[in-house]
Design a protein around this nucleic acid. Structure first.
Lengths: 192, 192
DNA sequence: TTTCTTTCTTGTCTTTTGTAAACGTTTTTA
DNA sequence: TAAAAACGTTTACAAAAGACAAGAAAGAAA
């Protein structure tokens, strides 16, 4: 269950066997079907998720429409960080797009782990550093690149995403409408 | 010199006197004029900056044009995180927009501080958590909001920024051209 | 399979933005 | 102070995107 997770942590810090046992006992495994809401609108969340298998998205509702702002697949953390860290209610919804397998970590357990495992702060710090770089690149892409460039970049970084996520969700994730993405795709085909 | 900085850290963790002395000795003060480049294109950077006074921007060059992707004022960290953390050359340039006062921290000193100050990892971890939330909100705003909404949000969050930063830099920061921002401003005036 | 729902594409029209250039104003700086 | 550079706005035109609706295609469920 947790081997995949520790393959991930091993790339970041060297947890001892004892560390890993403490960590493993704090993590609970959860298997869910498609369309399961892991975090719901206007609810507080005290959980972080590590996605072992499957696919998730995070979305906002604006003018009655679901706008996808984040999509992720295997081997990454996800959570409504704002709500998790500040304790406010979440304006984001997180739901599965496929049957998925997750590890779940509660805030209380995490706070305990910070005290019990000296390396824990360093692990999270380094994970956040990498996450921050990713977010910064995504943000920069919105400023620097056209929607068409963002789409082709997304495809080259993650070719299988088109098979796993409906296009209209990818569209809002790219900051455009489904109609517009369809036209962009047509334009690309016509070019080649 | 470092009082302002420790006012900032005090909100995050309780460094001891000894911690603060170690930290203070690792920080060097730097006073610079407008248009000073703190990080340059295609150079490696091993420095983080804490802005005590003044105003900075981070920009990319695309098609010969400078595109501002980040602007910040007093009491915040800035750096080319990608280059700083991964050791690659920076594609970003960071420059001052006003005469500014900074604290400078070298990567080597930071790595030493992680060993000497037990709270250091926690401090950076919590700082990164807050930074991540900010980046996530900025990214979400690009997906959810129109340029006009982003502009009015920016003004309400940071009303003095219009006096401190040229409009054409704000424009690219909002993901649009200077021409477009000028039109948006006109539209807003006409509405009221 | 057949039905129902979701997804994707297309067309028309409107709005917004980008590009490029011109022009007056303000700010730098030599 | 005078010249040069930077800045903000405007215009005309082109390209792209949004809104809305219709219909085709694909997928899921009965």
């Amino acid at each position: 269950m947790t081997e995949t997770f520790f393959t991930y942590t091993d790339k970041i810090v060297n947890f001892t066997k004892a560390d890993k046992e403490l960590l493993a006992s704090a993590l609970s495994f959860r298997q869910v079907t498609t369309k399961t809401e892991l975090v719901s609108y206007d609810k507080r969340t005290d959980k972080l998720f590590f996605l072992l298998k499957g696919c998730l998205r995070k979305y906002y509702v604006k003018d009655g429409q679901q706008i996808t702002v984040y999509i992720t697949t295997e081997n990454s953390f996800i959570g409504a960080f704002d709500s998790f860290i500040t304790g406010t209610t979440s304006k984001e919804t997180i739901e599965t797009l496929e049957p998925s397998e997750l590890l779940v970590l509660n805030k209380k357990d995490l706070d305990r782990l910070y005290k019990e495992i000296p390396l824990m702060n360093e692990f999270v710090r380094k994970t956040l550093e990498l996450t921050l770089i990713q977010f910064q690149q995504a943000l920069t892409s919105f400023i620097l690149d056209s929607p068409e460039e963002r789409y082709t970049k997304l495809l080259s970084q993650n070719p299988e995403i088109l098979q796993r996520v409906p296009q209209h969700m990818l569209a809002t994730y790219l900051g455009i409408t489904a109609t517009s993405l369809s036209r962009i795709r047509k334009r690309i085909v016509e070019k080649s």
